[in-house]
Design a protein around this nucleic acid. Structure first.
Lengths: 136, 136
DNA sequence: TATTACCCTATCGTTTTTGTAGATTTATAT
DNA sequence: ATATAAATCTACAAAAACGATAGGGTAATA
């Protein structure tokens, strides 16, 4: 299941990308337009800023704005920041690898074998989509 | 994240498929061989039986056994029973469809657009793998 | 009578999602 | 300059949902 954090984050990014301007947009406006709990969105935008996707400006006339062109924002990067690992099990994760506690031999593990394929296919989708591709 | 339920279920199925015999195998043996909590496995095997993957026999010499050939057990079916929807959001699910509470128009939703592709790519993997393919 | 699957329930721990309360920064009007 | 209003930032906390596991009793079968 996709977490609401990721869902809301994606929606917020898409909304910002869809605007003509790159001037700061207030949290309240984004939250209202996308039907998102404002306080929750606040923390999501914060992590997007900390990870280099958004810039922010405090005080009156402040808000959040895209820091890169939508064409340059890959879904692999967005998903990893918001949702975490793309792989469904740590033992096939590229960026968050961990050995399974059970499972004596990864190469003979059926779960590993299947989830490796799933990871690769998901990865291909995320690599082929930038933020610009999600705007209709 | 893949639930342990699914992980354990897949391992149990693979173990049964890897055996020469189709005679009943006790829960304890499966649990021990795959390093799984026996009590947890118990409930997993039960749902696999209720969904037509396994047969069972009570009493001495009882246990669980495969009811179909490994070649005829598709991962799409196994995943849907153990993990639930293959889609990451209900609004792109084939078997568990649900409209999003927010989101006025699915066709214009960026999350929908992306997750539709992810679903299709995962589906292709699951369709191309039977239980027989997971045995090494 | 022993063995094994079946079934129900309770519990513990973690993660997700949301809410509360304030502190800090900035633009603007007076 | 000063006050005011408008924002983001920070830190908790709590509630809700979910995942994983354990315990104990029942029913079927050799």
């Amino acid at each position: 299941m996709l977490s609401k954090k990721t869902k809301y984050g994606l929606k917020a990014l898409t909304y910002l990308a869809s605007l003509e301007t790159r001037e700061p947009v207030q949290i309240a406006e984004i939250a209202k337009h996308e039907n998102i709990s404002q306080k929750f969105l606040e923390s999501i935008l914060l992590t997007l800023r900390r990870n280099g996707f958004l810039g922010s400006k405090k005080g009156k006339g402040g808000g959040y704005y895209l820091i890169k062109e939508p064409e340059d924002i890959l879904m692999t990067a967005v998903m990893r920041v918001l949702e975490g690992p793309i792989a469904m099990v740590p033992c096939v994760s590229l960026n968050f690898y961990e050995k399974c506690a059970d499972c004596p031999d990864e190469n003979k593990c059926s779960v590993n074998k299947l989830m490796l394929q799933v990871r690769d296919s998901a990865l291909e989708v995320y690599r082929n989509n930038t933020l610009a591709d999600l705007i209709s």
